[in-house]
Design a protein around this nucleic acid. Structure first.
Length: 476
DNA sequence: ATGTTC
């Protein structure tokens, strides 16, 4: 990206003053090196977002930002319903509430190394992964409505997990005001056999070891120690969320035209938050959030069963669960006063700072765990949300490494089998049904996740707590 | 991300 188009406000903060149709400035948080590598499309898309009605303060892009549908992936934007603010299906994304949850295991790397192959094989046998994968569970439409209203809370009531898991999930496992009635029958049909499945693309279940901790106080608050094994599950709302995105994008494109909302890009189709379409989308999107939370909860239950069998000493407890693709109603201080705004985070993680009332008591002094998934075979990081994020980015931070190469290009460049063999030689076991999928997800297709989290920290959005390396990875 | 092309 051409850096001359920006005002450098700080080492990792690049501003674009409002001009043309922009209602507010745009801000990218990144190092100079990440900025140089960043797709020009991010500049175009973030300035487009800044022109949407009712946007508050600024449009933001995180250090891992790249080209997305309408909004960049790694985009954050807040809208005020009392100022004509909008909700955009493209601003949430197709994989609604895709996210990561990380579990403690209480065992060490050597405990896993002893049984590593069996653990990899058993997880792969039990965790359905891949395009169109189906699970062991089947739900009639009415049961699905209960899931869409109840989220992880429903799952725990059904015996998938423990009541104390819920405090460690955003919204305590169930987002309010979900509207299963606003979800099409087609979306529900697609989901009836996909609960408890991982999906494809960059989704994974990974067994990881803590290689480094950076802040002793925060590591202790998160109960993280070097050498401990963790499990991270990265997946979303599967076919249901995708179908909701498709359904409402179509409807928003038609309605925006009728309402005279001028769009710089038709992919930014949106509806006023206070319109009936806006409210229906919000209800459907919240149903998809609950679907994703229930999905990750069921996968947690299966993972616990596998560990109980292969490593009986392990005790899996939830560190935290974050969502990456959402729009949430939150209170933020804008121009010195508390305002209720609708925060779109697309490929961005909520990163609430210390003292936030939505955090469970055990984590409140430390700040929210921010779980950063690396690319396959590379490190992941755990950060802590900060007061800086509350001031600078509506309580948001980055979400991952950020793709640097298209799937097509990666599939041409790498051979899946070779990628698996090379990682196995480094002690990392990959299990996947799709060699092409593995090639598309080759570590070289992504930016350096370490550079991304360093930039997030330097920008004042989050504090580094721990670095993890993979031991086993089940891929879609 | 996605019954990987409405």
């Amino acid at each position: 990206m051409d850096l001359k188009r920006f005002d450098r406000a700080a080492e990792c903060e690049w501003r674009i003053a409002a001009h043309g149709a922009m209602r507010v400035p745009a801000v990218i948080f990144a190092s100079e090196s990440l900025m140089r590598d960043m797709d020009d499309k991010v500049f175009e898309q973030i300035t487009n977002v800044a022109s949407l009605p009712g946007i508050v303060t600024a449009a933001y892009a995180m250090p891992d930002a790249h080209w997305g549908y309408g909004f960049p992936i790694g985009g954050v934007a807040a809208f005020d319903p009392d100022d004509g603010g909008v909700i955009s299906a493209g601003g949430v994304g197709f994989d609604i509430s895709c996210g990561v949850r990380t579990l403690h295991t209480g065992v060490t790397e050597s405990d896993v190394r002893r049984v590593q192959v069996r653990l990899a094989d058993r997880l792969f046998a039990r965790i359905p992964a891949g395009v169109g994968s189906t699970g062991a569970l089947r739900f009639a439409p009415r049961e699905l409505d209960t899931i869409l209203a109840g989220g992880a809370r429903w799952a725990v009531e059904q015996g998938y997990g423990r009541p104390d898991d819920l405090a460690r999930i955003e919204e305590r496992g169930c987002v309010a005001d979900a509207a299963p009635d606003a979800v099409s029958d087609a979306a529900k049909r697609r989901q009836r056999d996909e609960m408890g499945t991982l999906g494809s693309g960059n989704h994974y279940l990974e067994v990881q070891v803590v290689t480094d901790t950076y802040d002793a106080r925060l590591a202790e608050a998160f109960s993280i120690e070097r050498g401990e094994v963790l499990v991270s599950i990265h997946c979303g709302s599967r076919g249901l969320g995708h179908q909701i995105g498709t359904d409402y994008l179509r409807e928003m494109a038609i309605s925006a035209k009728q309402q005279g909302i001028t769009l710089p890009d038709r992919e930014l189709a949106c509806a006023r938050i206070d319109s009936s379409l806006g409210q229906r989308y919000l209800g459907a999107m919240r149903a998809a959030i609950n679907c994703a939370l229930a999905n990750r909860q069921i996968l947690t239950h299966i993972t616990r069963q596998v560990f109980a069998d292969v490593i009986p000493d392990a005790a899996l407890s939830l560190l935290y669960d974050v969502s990456h693709n959402t729009c949430k109603v939150e209170q933020h201080v804008v121009g010195g006063e508390a305002r209720r705004v609708f925060v779109h985070r697309k490929g961005a993680t909520r990163a609430f700072g210390p003292g936030h009332p939505d955090l469970p008591e055990a984590l409140r002094d430390a700040g929210q765990p921010v779980l950063i998934g690396g690319s396959m075979g590379t490190a992941s990081y755990i950060l802590a949300g900060s007061a800086g994020a509350m001031q600078r980015s509506f309580g948001s931070a980055c979400h991952g490494a950020g793709r640097g190469m298209s799937r097509h290009e990666a599939a041409k460049r790498w051979n899946g089998r070779s990628v698996i063999d090379e990682l196995a030689a480094r002690g990392i076991l990959i299990r996947s049904l799709s060699a092409r999928g593995v090639a598309e997800e080759a570590p070289g297709a992504y930016h350096d996740v370490g550079a991304v989290v360093d930039a997030a920290e330097l920008a004042g959005l989050a504090r580094k707590v721990a670095r993890l390396e993979p031991l086993v990875c089940v891929k879609g």
